[in-house]
Amino acid sequence: MYKLLVIEDDKMMSEMLSMYMSGEGYEIKQAENGEQGLKLLAAFDPDVVLLDLMLPDWDGTELCIRMRRQSSVPIMIVSMKSEVSERVQALRAGADDYLCKPFSMHELSARVEALIRRSRLMQAGAAGERPEEGGPDAEKEIKLDAERRLLLVRGGFVETTFSEFEIMKLFLSHPGKVFTREDLINAIRGFDSFVTDRAIDVHIVNLRRKIEKNPKEPHYIRTVWGVGYKYVTEVEAPH
């Protein structure tokens, strides 16, 4: 049974989330403020956290940063705030997903399942259980395992958010092709309904940090000024 920590000060919302997800087979713990959330994060050791941004004692984004420092647990923001700036801040703070209220409980459940699945795969990777395709060439390449949603960078596992993974899947499927921001938005809109040009730029910055040897002089993910981005292979010389 997977464990879910709900950090939400709205008691009705917290109960609704807990009732639905417990019906889906999850063990639930609830916290009505940030301090309780931090204590339960350590004591309960959840598989995923649902975090509201508006808490009585903590700014939700700051709490997300604090939680990310002490745990790699998947964090999904569940908030009334739908502004692009809030979503961008949450991504930068280490959140893995962002769901705006009101939302479908069915969608919430699907996203939680996907977060846990990716987290388990990354833990397996950290334990040294490399996929079969990680042969000698893996040390020199960036590879994608679409079924298991794994990203291998020079032979090592790198954790990505859902949006980052989908962008990399598109890049790796079409090396050299220039994608506009609109192309990338459309690629991830299925589960990131509020994605914008600014959010795409944040994803690109984060991906460069994860795959480039020098993110300030990117080799793989190149900016095509006035158009968008493209992914190039190792055989292409930097411009």
Rank of each mutant, 00 (worst) to 15 (best):
I7K: 01
P238M: 11
T196C: 03
A127P: 02
I188K: 00
D10R: 01
N214C: 11
S14N: 09
K39R: 12
H174F: 09
A124T: 06
Q89A: 14
A31Q: 05
R149W: 05
L99E: 00
Y220H: 12
E8C: 07
P215R: 07
A90T: 03
P215T: 09
E113V: 07
P131C: 14
E24F: 07
P238V: 08
P46F: 03
I116C: 03
C64K: 05
R69E: 15
L63W: 11
E133F: 15
V73N: 02
Y220C: 04
L172K: 02
R222D: 03
V112D: 03
S71N: 05
G156H: 14
L50T: 07
N214H: 10
L53H: 01
K177M: 10
L172M: 09
L99Q: 01
T180K: 10
P136W: 10
E32C: 11
Y229C: 08
E27L: 13
A138G: 12
D59N: 14
Y2N: 14
L144Q: 05
E15H: 13
R208M: 08
V88Y: 04
G155T: 10
R189W: 09
L108F: 07
R87V: 01
M105P: 01
I142E: 01
E164D: 06
Y2F: 13
R209Y: 12
R181P: 03
A110I: 10
R87F: 02
E129T: 10
C100V: 12
R209M: 13
G190F: 13
K210Q: 05
K11W: 07
R92G: 06
M67W: 04
M76H: 09
N206G: 11
R118L: 07
I142D: 01
V232K: 00
D183G: 12
E86T: 09
E234C: 08
Y231F: 14
T196G: 03
E129N: 13
P218Y: 07
